[in-house]
Design a protein around this nucleic acid. Sequence first.
DNA 1: TGTACATCAGTGAACGCGCGTTCACTGATGTAC
DNA 2: TGTACATCAGTGAACGCGCGTTCACTGATGTAC
Lengths: 197, 197
Amino acid sequence: MKKSKAETAVTRTRIIEAAAQAFMRNGIEATGVAEIMATVGLTAGGFYRHFDSKEQLVAEAYAARMDIRVASAEVGQDEGYQKVLEHLENVLSVANLGDIFTGCPIVAMGSELARASDETRHVASGGIQDLVEVLAKWNPGEKPPFAEEDAICTLSSMVGAATLSRIVDDPELSTHILDVVKKRLADSLRAKIGACA
Amino acid sequence: MKKSKAETAVTRTRIIEAAAQAFMRNGIEATGVAEIMATVGLTAGGFYRHFDSKEQLVAEAYAARMDIRVASAEVGQDEGYQKVLEHLENVLSVANLGDIFTGCPIVAMGSELARASDETRHVASGGIQDLVEVLAKWNPGEKPPFAEEDAICTLSSMVGAATLSRIVDDPELSTHILDVVKKRLADSLRAKIGACA
DNA sequence: TGTACATCAGTGAACGCGCGTTCACTGATGTAC
DNA sequence: TGTACATCAGTGAACGCGCGTTCACTGATGTAC
């Protein structure tokens, strides 16, 4: 039952994608290797032809989703702030509440990542640094390190707001938290644009 | 081996405290009932004389820690902002990195709380609302709902910064994230005090 | 106050279950001649 | 191009293990008389 190299690569990618969905939806601890493999249509044993351990998969699944996140935050330097507002809207969207398997892996796996293996935390750190770097470009006319400090504050606010809104069981409060922080970040961005023009 | 009512109450409290420590340190999923009972010097079977299920313990352990958190954030209205700065320093302290079992239960259990039982999430929501209410009092001279919105932003920033700093594996970046957000919040508070005086 | 009895905190073994991982095996693929 | 063989993706059963929960039992406590 050997498969071609192309097929093997596709299978590997499909496992990573299924894992990312399950980890984000149900948590890392709560998701089993057999469950992930079943989603892809395979049995548990085959897993170890692609990965050394579940931990390795965690790191790769996180990295894959974080790459998407960073790429989507990347806006051209001249693209204006409309695009940035769009991104804010997207990240702090009400649609990300409840059953999320898209969205930000930092929010979805947050406290589990802090307890993950050294390897996973290292990958996670890289993703966070990339995100800070990209967000720093959002700040027009500011020079490092000020833009970088601003980016850290923005990211902290977004991660915190998304985390809180997902814990809260009152849908109105959930939405309120997202809206308040979204508005605050947008206002602050607009003020900076104004100061530059 | 029946115990007096007083002894039983003490045991119950000790179980909750041991659980809170373990849940915050190692995560909810990763902590077993037997492990918690062993910490208290008892065997697993006795657990069900005090609680219906592990889930119930999760809710009570969270509530106990959150009460402490809310109480420590509660500063008298006239106590000045020095006390508030002290609190900021405390919450965003570098000491809370690494092996935390004190500190904020929202940060320590974050993404696991979002997936907890309805009962646990309800308790968690109440704690968050209490905290927002207390933080709103920090804002001198502002009236609701503006003070409340400010409190939500402050809490989001703190939760996000603490979460990020715990994931990152570079100690310098961890400290940097905490320092930047701490400074930003303190500056914003000072500006408001100045505007009032 | 003293006695008889119901209560119930805690024990320790057992329950079914799902976990991550291993392993002998299968058979299509890729390669060497 | 055709044949022989090594490779290796995937199977499915098994491994030891720890999980949350149950249960018959023990014996000190609290209560009713």
